[in-house]
Design a protein around this nucleic acid. Structure first.
Length: 639
DNA sequence: TTCCATCTGT
């Protein structure tokens, strides 16, 4: 026995930390119970030695716990099966041969290296052990998670048939899932179609696959025709619509789900919160938050909290996001990155940087996204030196290779700070191909600093990369207008016309009591539009007394000054703000979402409106948040 | 002992 217990199979661990489950720990509360936590096979070896020496009587839960212990052993490299077997023999309660193999296969198939499960399976076949349905389900799982040849999966499928397991629904579902995750939609669907006794999981697997492929119409068809739906069926559809940027449809489905009485779980909650974040639906987001608290979902699931943080950030409620963050029991790199990015989006660079220090104190390793947030924070407030330092540090100290987003932030930082030449040099030295965001950042800087040459260079590149995007032409035209080069303004306008490009209409939305009201500049189909215009005119009159002068340079239309002013007065964010002021109680913050960037005239007007009405007005534009209070904006006019 | 899933980004 002693020799069979040699622990030479243990090597330096290559696997993530593992823990014996709580059941074993609980069974060992009295006597000189060893500390049963371990995270490496070496610690496990010591633990086992102590267990043997202690001569503890075996509780009924011990053998099965040892199954788990043995499964962990299999993860040592190279995995050794004989050790686990010897453990069972030692306790005189060896389970069947197949179960033993299955336990190992189960662990390996969901480990970071599923290929090991496949290797173990070939050893099982070589040893002449007969696989059962469990064995095959683990192997198929390993196949679907392994980049190895799909032929192997087909071979196992053949084995399923050969061994007579063709009516085992677990196996069939796993097979459908395997074909789907290997990208073989045709085989998955073929199998799905011929399974006579599909259960809800079979349907869910197929639906989930289609949603991941972006085939929402097919997914919806299957969803509509399935005989019964589980919470996962609903969640798959909702998450699919969120993923493919159709948050309205996601919320419609969620409301349908509610009417059926189906109870959302934490995954549903995550998907619905993401839809709320996309739409700025604060009211529903808050309701979901309350529901999550009621069910304690937020305590058990860090992703629920992370998504709550994101939802509050994108709805403009940084304080509430921070509150969720501060109250979390455990934070991952995602929680930190989301919160840092949130402060960045709201122009709070200091808070973002401070949070990063705290993150380091908490020994949470930052990732590429964390640095996007930090660089974003720096660029939004003009922290040039800090930004350069982060960019250096991310590679030097953290070994993170800069991605296109990081380059985008750096060009934004440099060009907004007026270092246009350096920004151009930076682009030219980039080891990856600059994209439209990078050139767009240079264009933005060129506009702020009225640099026509840089603007032209940027647009030259943008026309190749993203020729259908009208926004760039508009910016360049604004640069020309600023310099009073009207012929060039006209040239751009002609160019847009020739290419069939129309300026994307700006729209703004405001949500009141769960109803979304949207406003488009110059459009007047809102039932209260007369009233809104009257109210807005009164407001603008007051503004003029405070020295507000309309900035017509933002208007890219061929018309006289008077008409330009009219267009400007009816910009969508002004309409939305007026509507919000009319329909909410004094002191309530107004939250507006805009599809484009806030124009400079609206920015100036909203500052004054916040002052004379004594309201906080939060505007989420396509880039960031502007929070107008007491006559100034959180962006400190650096945007 | 088994099948379906969730978060942060210019």
């Amino acid at each position: 026995m002693a020799s069979s217990l040699t622990l030479s199979a243990f090597q330096i661990p290559t696997s993530p930390p593992y823990r014996v489950n709580a059941a074993i720990a609980a069974s060992q509360t009295s006597r000189e119970a060893p500390d049963l936590h371990f995270s490496t096979p070496f610690q496990l070896q010591q633990l086992h030695a102590r267990l043997i020496k202690s001569g503890l009587p075996l509780s009924s839960s011990l053998p099965i716990s040892l199954t788990r212990v043995a499964a962990v052993c299999a993860l040592s490299s190279p995995s050794d099966f004989s050790y686990a077997r010897s453990v069972f023999l030692l306790y005189g309660d060896a389970p069947s041969e197949t179960l033993l193999w299955n336990t190992h296969l189960n662990t390996l198939s969901s480990s970071p290296c599923p290929g090991e499960a496949l290797a173990l399976f070939s050893r099982l076949r070589f040893a002449g052990v007969l696989p059962d349905t469990f064995t095959l389900s683990f192997v198929l799982k390993a196949c679907s998670r392994s980049p190895l040849s799909p032929l192997l999966g087909r071979a196992v499928h053949a084995l399923v048939e050969k061994l007579g397991f063709r009516s085992d629904i677990f196996l069939l579902n796993t097979l459908v899932h395997m074909y789907a995750s290997l990208g073989d939609t045709a085989s998955a669907r073929l199998l799905f179609n011929v399974i006579p006794a599909k259960d809800v999981v079979t349907w869910n697997i197929m639906i989930t696959h289609y949603t991941k492929e972006g085939e929402m119409v097919v997914a919806q068809q299957l969803f509509d025709s399935m005989p019964e739906r589980s919470v996962r069926s609903w969640t798959a559809m909702i998450a699919g619509y969120v993923q493919w940027k159709n948050p309205n449809e996601a919320l419609r489905l969620f409301r349908d789900m509610e009417t059926t009485g189906m109870r959302p779980n934490e995954v549903t909650v995550v998907a619905v919160l993401a839809a709320c974040a996309d739409l700025g639906e604060l009211d529903l987001g808050k309701r979901i938050h309350a529901f999550a608290m009621q069910c304690s979902l937020h305590k058990n699931n860090v992703r629920v909290c992370n998504t709550l943080i994101d939802m509050y950030i994108k709805c403009g409620c940084l304080q509430l996001a921070r509150q969720v963050f501060d109250e979390m029991a455990e934070r991952t790199v995602v929680s930190w990155s989301a919160m840092i990015g949130g402060h960045a989006m709201h122009g709070q660079a200091e808070e973002a940087l401070e949070l990063f220090s705290k993150m380091e104190e908490a020994s949470v390793e930052p990732n590429a996204v964390t640095f996007v947030g930090l660089l974003h924070a720096c660029s939004h407030i003009g922290l040039l030196q800090e930004g350069r330092q982060f960019f250096r540090s991310m590679t030097q100290d953290y070994g993170i290779v800069p991605e296109i987003e990081h380059y985008g932030c750096m060009v934004d930082l440099l060009s907004r700070a007026g270092l246009l030449e350096e920004a151009r040099g930076f682009i030219n030295k980039m080891p990856i191909e600059p994209n439209s965001v990078v050139w767009g950042a240079l264009l933005g800087g060129a506009k702020v600093h009225k640099n026509i040459e840089m603007g032209e260079e940027a647009i030259h590149n943008l026309m190749e990369l993203d020729p259908r995007n009208d926004g760039y032409y508009v910016v360049l035209s604004n640069i020309y207008a600023d310099a009073e080069r009207w012929e060039d303004v006209a040239k751009i306008r002609r160019m847009m016309k020739d290419r069939g490009l129309k300026k994307t209409p700006g729209w703004s939305t405001i949500s009141l009591d769960g109803v979304v009201h949207s406003f488009v500049a110059g459009e007047s189909d809102h039932p209260q539009i007369e009233e809104i215009h009257r109210s807005l005119d009164e407001l603008l009159e007051k503004l003029r007394h405070r020295g507000y002068v309309p900035d017509t340079s933002a208007v890219l239309l061929d018309m006289d000054e008077k008409n330009k002013e009219r267009v400007l007065y009816h910009h969508s964010e002004k309409l939305a703000a007026a509507y919000g002021l009319m329909n909410t109680a004094n002191g309530t913050p107004i939250r507006i979402m805009k599809n484009l960037r806030v124009c400079s005239d609206c920015h100036a007007a909203l500052k004054l409106i916040s002052e004379i009405t004594n309201r906080e007005i939060v505007v989420r534009d396509r880039n960031r948040f502007h929070s107008f209070r007491h006559g100034s904006c959180s962006c400190k006019d650096y945007w």
